[in-house]
């Protein structure tokens, strides 16, 4: 049984199909998939070319949390709640930005839903506009690089912490570079009753400006530099962190991506590079990343 594809239209080297397939396989296909508008939706749900092997619904950009909550409520009312896991697949734009209200409502009411955010750090479906998940310094079409601006100014919102703050039973970050770890987390999430949030880092070949064959390597470097710590919370307690034997400098991750390349030339680039290294250092301290 193919749960996702073949036939989807994602770019060669796209990160998120690894997560989508991995998640549904981890749940043995017992999934009702709820998808917000975005890359994943566009590449998989065109009329007549559905590539989903599980029941699938797409409604709007910003309401996947509420639609999932409605489905879960209906399954409960109809006594069908043992039938399947309700799983949201939403991009970072839909999750961090426009849909955070419905996601917050879902988590506040603790609907029995696994919400998976595939984080490719910008609105990639429409050609790389910044989201609140875009890291500082990244070049997007709405944070272009110019004389006065070295890409995005600001920080990346910590959505995992926001999820934890809702007192939900399970929240975790993951990366498509560690598919086994991601699948374990999805399975673990499914063991809890209530809202679960998993954020999975998934590089975008075009938006990040990377070679399609380097997707997994780039994702791994995000983890190995401390910029994308893999953490796991159960009932608000940090229960697991992926330790790093030898944390790499952030430049190793940044220099192979076109979206950060200007930082090495721009006169304000040094400050941003320092900021990014500081973020990695703070992550290392906060989560005890260094083995």
């Amino acid at each position: 049984m193919n749960y996702f594809g073949p036939g989807h239209g994602a770019c060669p080297g796209c990160g998120f199909p690894i997560a989508i397939r991995g998640a549904i396989e981890a749940l043995d296909g017992k999934v009702i998939a709820v998808n917000s508008t975005g890359c994943l939706e566009i590449v998989s749900s065109m009329y007549g070319r559905n590539t989903w092997g599980v029941p699938y619904i797409h409604s709007l950009f910003e309401n996947a949390g509420a639609v999932a909550a409605g489905i879960e409520t209906a399954l409960k009312a109809l006594k069908r709640d043992k039938e399947a896991h309700v799983v949201v697949f939403a991009g970072d734009g839909a999750t961090f930005d426009i849909g955070i209200g419905t996601l917050s409502g879902m988590m506040d009411r603790d609907h029995n839903v696994i919400y998976i955010c595939y984080d490719n750090e910008a609105y990639q479906n429409t050609g790389n506009q910044q989201s609140m998940a875009t890291p500082p310094g990244a070049r997007t079409t709405t944070t272009p690089v110019g004389k006065l601006q070295p890409g995005k100014i600001g920080k990346k919102k910590d959505m995992v912490e926001i999820a934890v703050a809702h007192n939900i039973p399970y929240a975790a970050s993951a990366s498509i570079a560690y598919p086994k770890d991601f699948q374990r987390k999805v399975k673990r999430a499914s063991e809890f009753e209530g809202s679960k949030y998993i954020q999975v880092h998934a590089p975008c070949v075009t938006g990040w400006g990377i070679d399609g064959k380097l997707t997994v390597e780039v994702a791994r470097l995000a983890v190995e530099t401390g910029l994308y710590p893999l953490v796991e919370y159960e009932h608000g307690k940090l229960v697991k962190v992926r330790k790093l034997k030898q944390r790499k400098p952030v430049e190793e991750y940044l220099k192979i991506q076109r979206r950060f390349r200007h930082l090495f030339k721009h006169e304000m680039g040094k400050d941003i590079l320092d900021q990014l290294q500081r973020i990695a250092d703070e992550n290392a301290e906060k989560y005890g990343l260094d083995a």
């Binding site: 639609v67 409605g70 489905i71 209906a74 399954l75 409960k76």
Partner: peptide, 25 residues
């Protein structure tokens, strides 16, 4: 056996009944 839910907004309420209806409710 009905479920009653207070949403976080009317937008959320409408989205919930949309999801519920799609699930057959």
């Amino acid at each position: 056996d009905a479920e009653y839910v207070t949403a976080e907004s009317e937008f959320g309420a409408a989205s919930m009944v949309l999801g519920a209806s799609a699930a057959g409710a």
